[in-house]
């Protein structure tokens, strides 16, 4: 954490970027030298707290749309199987469309290495103390990756069912991955995330015989919060249900490519 202002940004590292000198946001300090007492007054602001992030996300979305690139933001708690699913997806779809992945984790490039083993391109973003990716980090990673026109860009967010819900990255859709070992009550406990997502993937379906996970209830909970959410059930390990997942991606991609041409 940056000790000057208490933020995590100073530790963000985007793989491939030339090392920059650690910069602190400069806070203005002119208050210390003011003579006398000036009158108290109110200054109107009326600005969204997330306006800077949302503006950068708008640029990311605009750049990606121009290229006809489908970007999906994968969000979940740690260990739901995001990287396993992406490695399989890259192997299955990579022959038809170029696949690139932005991997977000606090530390290590383990996940980007796993993706690169499939032959897909990947950039690791380490957020340091940060608990989510933001539009600035993703914009920088996109500039490193230079995705091909008509390709697929997956963004694996930091494993966290809370914070990533608030940050638009410029993606076409958020996909929330929920593994069946986590319990069917998660949509009710973390409603912000399930509301922000367009699609819920129930992963590790191969474990359903061994855990008391009520799929129907889980879907009902998710649709209570987000009536339009799509639901897919699969196992990234065995490959069961991956055909529907790839078909869903292909539908989203066609919509984006059609708009770009």
């Amino acid at each position: 954490m940056c000790t000057t202002c208490g933020c995590g940004h100073g530790d963000v590292a985007v793989e491939g970027e030339a090392a920059l000198p650690h910069h602190h946001h400069h806070h203005d300090h002119h208050h210390a030298h003011a003579p006398g007492i000036s009158p108290t007054r109110i200054i109107e602001i009326e600005r969204d707290i997330l306006s800077k992030n949302d503006h950068l996300a708008w640029h990311n979305r605009d750049d990606l749309a121009r290229l006809g690139v489908l970007a999906l933001n994968l969000v979940s708690s740690p260990g739901s199987g995001k990287t396993t699913l992406l490695a399989r997806t890259a192997a299955d779809l990579g022959t038809r469309r170029a696949v690139a992945v932005i991997e977000g984790d606090q530390q290590t490039s383990l996940d980007a290495d796993r993706i690169r083993e499939t032959g897909a391109r990947a950039v690791q973003v380490n957020t340091g103390k940060g608990c989510h990716l933001d539009a600035d980090m993703v914009g920088r990673a996109i500039r490193q990756l230079q995705p091909e026109p008509g390709s697929l860009l997956f963004i694996e967010n930091v494993g966290n069912l809370v914070c990533p819900a608030a940050f638009d990255l410029g993606e076409a859709a958020k996909v929330v991955i929920l593994s069946v070992t986590e319990g069917e009550d998660k949509p009710l406990k973390y409603p912000d995330m399930f509301r922000a997502a367009s699609c819920m993937v129930l992963n590790k379906s191969d474990l359903l015989p061994y855990v008391p996970f009520d799929v129907e209830k889980c879907v009902e909970y998710a649709r209570r919060i987000n009536p339009g959410i799509e639901v897919l059930q699969l196992s990234a390990l065995t490959g069961d249900g991956l055909g529907d997942w790839c078909a869903w991606i292909e539908r989203q991609a066609s919509a984006i490519t059609a708009k770009a041409s």
């Binding site: 933020c7 995590g8 203005d28 000036s38 602001i45 600005r47 707290i49 914070c163 608030a166 940050f167």
Partner: peptide, 25 residues
């Protein structure tokens, strides 16, 4: 905790707004 990033966003908006204004605090 995303509130940290949001609090930084608040401060940045405040600092942007105050630039060029005649005030000390």
């Amino acid at each position: 905790m995303h509130e940290m990033a949001l609090a930084e966003g608040v401060l940045q908006i405040v600092e942007d707004t105050i630039r060029g204004q005649n005030c000390t605090r």
